[in-house]
Amino acid sequence: MRKILKLIRKLTIVFLLLTSFSSFNYAQNKTFIVSYGANDAPPYAIVKKDKLFAGIIKDIFDAIVKDLDIKVKYVQTPRKRAEIYLASGKINAIAISNPQWLHQSNMYQWSDAIFVEKDLLVTLIKHQKKITKIAEMTNMIIGTTRGYKYPTLTKAFSDKRILRSDATNIAANFARLKLARIDGFIDSNILIKHHLTNLTLQHDTPKKIFQIEPIIISEHFIHTALSSNSPVSASQFNNALHKLKKNGTIHAILKKYGV
């Protein structure tokens, strides 16, 4: 009986070792396909010659795949198709996401929070009245990002109390606001800060034309959404993420881009 129990233990250990080795090899032989969108403007994604060249997304994910010893491929995906591609396994991850933004968030694996982002409202400086709450945005035409969900404004948009006007990215919304085609626009504090610092205008500096209103439209954690067939599991991703947070890598990357 003892011999049989010893044999069972040995076989169990061998099975676990083979399973671990198989999983390790599977991850090594696969490529981690990470999606970013046209809406992920600098400093999230800096693109040159149609390839992701630098930015917060590339720097963070390069560090994560280096820790996991797996290859990575970055793919630009239209925002409206990103979830379809994630569900089908065409991509393995949406780099910048949140469970509230996807229609079937319970279908996917989710990373722990990577950092915090705020959605803010930008208007023209000549707009004198400061906006501190959503009710004060009534009848305004607000620039938004195509395919993006705004949970705190869903009802106001649906009731037409606030008029939604989509654009591809933040640069388009800055241009439309300058021409007064919209009354203001909503975007990430990270993108707004970067564009106000780097935007080039004739005659005037951006800070003489645009202002950030006091209202915070929403404040949320940024996560990565992982497909069910991703070669990197949520636990593997989170283990690497925690290491990079602990050793200061994530902080250094965010600081590098002024976050």
Rank of each mutant, 00 (worst) to 15 (best):
239 N>W: 08
238 N>L: 04
252 A>Y: 09
249 T>A: 08
90 K>G: 13
10 K>S: 15
105 S>H: 07
196 L>D: 00
72 V>H: 05
137 M>L: 08
151 P>T: 10
41 A>H: 11
183 D>I: 01
187 D>E: 12
151 P>G: 08
127 H>S: 14
199 L>P: 00
251 H>P: 11
192 I>W: 00
2 R>E: 15
153 L>C: 05
214 P>N: 06
51 K>A: 08
153 L>M: 09
106 N>W: 10
83 E>T: 01
32 F>R: 09
124 L>E: 06
216 I>A: 12
202 Q>V: 11
137 M>C: 03
117 E>D: 13
156 A>H: 10
95 A>E: 02
252 A>I: 01
47 V>H: 07
10 K>T: 15
23 S>P: 08
223 H>K: 09
165 S>W: 12
154 T>H: 13
12 T>P: 06
21 F>C: 15
209 I>F: 03
246 K>D: 13
15 F>P: 11
227 S>Q: 03
96 I>H: 06
99 P>G: 03
82 A>I: 00
227 S>R: 00
135 A>R: 12
188 S>L: 02
204 D>G: 06
210 F>L: 06
5 L>W: 14
184 G>P: 00
175 A>I: 11
111 S>M: 05
225 A>L: 07
163 L>M: 08
230 S>W: 05
223 H>C: 07
187 D>M: 04
235 S>L: 13
125 I>G: 14
124 L>D: 04
160 K>S: 11
92 N>T: 04
182 I>M: 02
93 A>V: 04
236 Q>K: 13
167 A>E: 11
92 N>K: 02
118 K>V: 05
238 N>R: 05
208 K>E: 15
4 I>P: 04
126 K>L: 02
235 S>C: 09
145 T>G: 09
34 V>A: 09
125 I>H: 12
181 R>A: 05
63 A>R: 06
113 A>R: 08
235 S>G: 09
23 S>H: 15
152 T>Q: 11
106 N>G: 07
122 V>S: 01
21 F>Y: 15
226 L>N: 06
135 A>Y: 07
34 V>T: 03
136 E>Q: 14
105 S>G: 01
76 Q>I: 13
164 R>T: 08
72 V>Y: 04
34 V>H: 00
248 G>E: 07
10 K>C: 14
50 D>C: 08
52 L>M: 01
165 S>R: 14
196 L>T: 00
17 L>P: 06
117 E>L: 10
36 Y>M: 03
111 S>Q: 07
240 A>D: 04
106 N>P: 05
85 Y>P: 03
215 I>M: 02
151 P>N: 09
242 H>C: 11
87 A>G: 11
242 H>V: 13
230 S>C: 09
186 I>V: 05
178 K>H: 13
63 A>N: 09
248 G>R: 03
71 K>A: 13
142 I>V: 14
199 L>E: 02
58 K>C: 02
87 A>H: 12
246 K>P: 08
208 K>P: 04
130 K>G: 04
23 S>I: 14
40 D>Y: 05
13 I>W: 10
244 L>N: 07
54 A>M: 01
258 G>F: 02
29 N>F: 10
97 S>A: 14
147 G>D: 07
219 E>M: 07
252 A>W: 04
62 D>F: 04
206 P>S: 06
101 W>S: 10
100 Q>V: 11
254 L>A: 05
2 R>L: 15
76 Q>E: 13
85 Y>A: 13
116 V>K: 13
164 R>Q: 14
50 D>H: 13
189 N>G: 07
196 L>C: 00
41 A>S: 15
214 P>Q: 06
